[in-house]
Design a binder for these strands. Structure first.
Lengths: 229, 229
DNA sequence: TTGACATGGTGTCATTCATACACTCAAATA
DNA sequence: TATTTGAGTGTATGAATGACACCATGTCAA
């Protein structure tokens, strides 16, 4: 809290408001989904928006993004990366608001609870190819986040941020195919993943109904996104 | 300008200050150089800083970066790309300042004037491997900009932003070698550049002292940075 | 019990791409 | 006219990539 008469915060020069917005993606049933919040108040009341909010004094940008995500969705412990800063002066009709956009990735299991017990359906998952009406410039933010995600798939281990601790190679391939939007050759895919040493076999099997059990693996470096190639 | 008693700008919640900072690189004599401004006033008086300054109301971030660069250095018409937003709450000792960092590239010819007639040597070029004492977190900004530049060299046509309208293939190769910090095979380099159709021959020659004249080329798309490969 | 079903799991060959490598050419200058 | 300096050019080898088909193993239903 700053000095003020009337409990206001005053500066010698005009200051914009600064927010973070978070595009949190997961993968469900062969689709990329994103978590959105329904806006109750104007502007854009009734439209859907990215979770996010104002940066607090003394808080760094990444902490702000993590806090807003936790406050608005209850979700913690996801992969988070700064995406781009959107600063068009008319992007928010109320006042000048600059948004530092982040994108976040998580395996479905870690976020499955979110939006389930959400009061008044204020929180929901949407497939990114079937988005509802979006507030502000959040459509552009999502588009850019997807671009980044698709690009990074080719030269980094980012896909593992969508994987649970244990997974089969078939599940991993499905994640790649979902993000790229095209099928991959099974043998070449497995060859590559193994050649780069991206996974370690767990020696366990996943038994699934109606088919042969699959070997379970874990990511070689689940906490890290490495550049490969 | 907002409402105010005492000509100040007041808000219901605290707002950070927002600046843009610009890392402008060029290439001279086989070195990457960056343009810095000597700080006259505290904090960090006497240290060198990136050109930059506060975002004005009604001004988008990119325009702010271009304006600050022009105001502080007189330079216009360079390639500009948003780099990263630095928001550590303690990065400026005076108040909370969030900086949207950009990096810019230009051929030496376009910026050779800058820092020449600069009053009181307030403006100077430094080789990036011999930087002076830097203000704020500008060292980290420069480091990240160089990382981005080196990465983009491999999969985009960004190197052409360092080239003048007419250049020889030898000059182009020198730029690549300077950024990568390692020599390249001449024949393979030329093969590649031609195979991707990145240059068009001008049918002119550059006559240089003491050696065979070299064919001059122009960039196929000088205004654009394309992703290749 | 057995047959149908669904996904798991595996290797080779052909092609393309990347890399290493050395000499002659043309102009300027001494 | 001999020397110097960068300009300009092609090939051969190894590595990486991409195309491709079949049998295995479990569940479930008839």
């Amino acid at each position: 809290m700053n000095d003020t008469s009337k409990g206001r915060h005053c500066y010698a020069h005009p200051h914009p408001a600064v927010t973070t917005d978070i595009a949190l993606f997961t993968i469900r049933d062969g689709r990329i989904e994103i978590l959105l919040v329904r806006r109750a108040a104007p502007p854009h009341a009734g439209a859907w928006a990215l979770p996010g909010g104002f940066v607090e004094p003394g808080e760094c940008l990444e902490d702000c993004a993590l806090r807003e995500l936790a406050e608005e969705t209850g979700i913690k412990g996801v992969y988070l990366e700064q995406l781009y800063t959107f600063g068009d002066p008319r992007r928010d009709p109320r006042e000048r608001v600059i948004s530092v956009a982040y994108y976040a990735l998580a395996p479905l299991q870690r976020v499955a609870g979110a939006a389930a017990g959400s009061e008044a359906a204020a929180l929901a998952w949407f497939a990114v190819d079937a988005l509802p009406e979006l507030a502000f410039d959040h459509g552009a933010i999502i588009e850019r986040a997807l671009e980044r995600l698709r690009a990074k798939l080719d030269y980094s281990t980012i896909a593992f941020q969508f994987m649970p601790r244990k997974f089969t190679l078939g599940e991993l391939q499905e994640v790649y195919e979902t993000i790229l939007g095209e099928p991959l050759d099974k043998r070449n895919f497995r060859k590559r993943v193994q050649a780069f040493g991206l996974v370690h076999p767990l020696g366990e099997m996943r038994r699934a109904a109606g088919r042969r059990p699959a070997a379970l693996y874990r990511a070689a470096h689940p906490e890290r996104v490495d550049i490969i190639k």
